[in-house]
């Protein structure tokens, strides 16, 4: 299979604290890799290392034509900052143009794709609901026309229907546009339903495999140190 990412013996250390230790895995082009594990095992640090933001040892090899989109964890934006969704997206669109790349997808098309109504895009970003704001961040990422999307708990703090819609949207992007998706999640039922591979980080050794292979009661108990409860919706 064609790999978009190959990681070999990746370690990240902050001072005396070894956050990631000797991690090796591969990600197939167009697949959806879920990164799971208890708090503090370095899930966000892994994404940061893959993006080259934190110093690491070992090797990280991305396919040459890769372009990234990144959706961070819930951001804390003041309600009264007069930057609208459109201001934010227009800024991204103009950066794409300045970079001399093709004009990229039209902002209006991206708004339709992620399901942000026009009137919501004119609102100040601090007043958007959690779900709308995450969609806006996804729209921002898509304006860069990425072939790899990295999402750090994209649905944290969003209500159930909002989570479902956003997860469906991300899956559609992966399946219809062939975008490779790397996402961090604590929602094991979402991981089961939406990922093709699962990377489970524990304080000991990391495991990677299909959701069926990784999301077993015994392995989860071993990693999380407690029984994990989740619902599986088979398709």
């Amino acid at each position: 299979m064609d790999h978009i990412l190959e990681v070999e013996r990746l370690s990240v250390r902050f001072g005396d604290n070894l956050v990631l230790n000797d991690l090796s895995f591969q990600v197939a082009k167009g697949s959806s890799l879920a990164v799971i594990g208890p708090n503090g095992v370095g899930k966000t640090v892994l994404l940061q290392a893959l993006l080259g933001w934190v110093p690491s040892s070992g090797s990280i090899r991305w396919a040459p034509e890769v372009t990234f989109g990144y959706v961070p964890q819930k951001l804390d934006i003041d309600r009264d900052v007069p930057i609208t969704g459109m201001d934010f997206l227009a800024a991204r669109a103009s950066l794409t143009r300045e970079a001399g790349r093709h004009t990229g997808p039209a902002t209006a098309n991206i708004l339709d794709l992620v399901g942000i109504p026009r009137e919501a895009s004119q609102k100040m970003i601090g007043t958007l609901s959690g779900g709308q704001f995450q969609r806006l961040l996804l729209a921002f990422a898509l304006l860069g026309d990425p072939n790899v999307l990295m999402l750090d708990e994209p649905t944290a703090g969003i209500d159930q229907p909002g989570q479902k819609q956003l997860n469906e949207l991300i899956r559609r992007l992966q399946q219809e546009r062939g975008i490779t998706v790397l996402f961090i999640s604590h929602e094991l039922s979402v991981v089961y339903e939406h990922s093709t591979e699962v990377l489970c980080l524990g304080h000991g050794k990391a495991r990677i495999g299909s959701p069926r292979k990784i999301l077993t009661p015994s392995l989860l108990n071993e990693i999380y140190g407690t029984a994990m409860d989740y619902h599986i919706h088979e398709h």
């Binding site: 933001w53 990234f68 990144y70 961070p72 227009a90 991204r92 103009s94 961040l137 921002f140 860069g144």
Partner: peptide, 20 residues
């Protein structure tokens, strides 16, 4: 630099992936 400043204001991490 207005556009870059806007993006950096919302999220420095997002700004980095946008090549800033």
């Amino acid at each position: 630099q207005r556009n870059k400043l806007v993006v950096m204001l919302v999220s420095p991490e997002v700004a980095r992936t946008a090549g800033i």
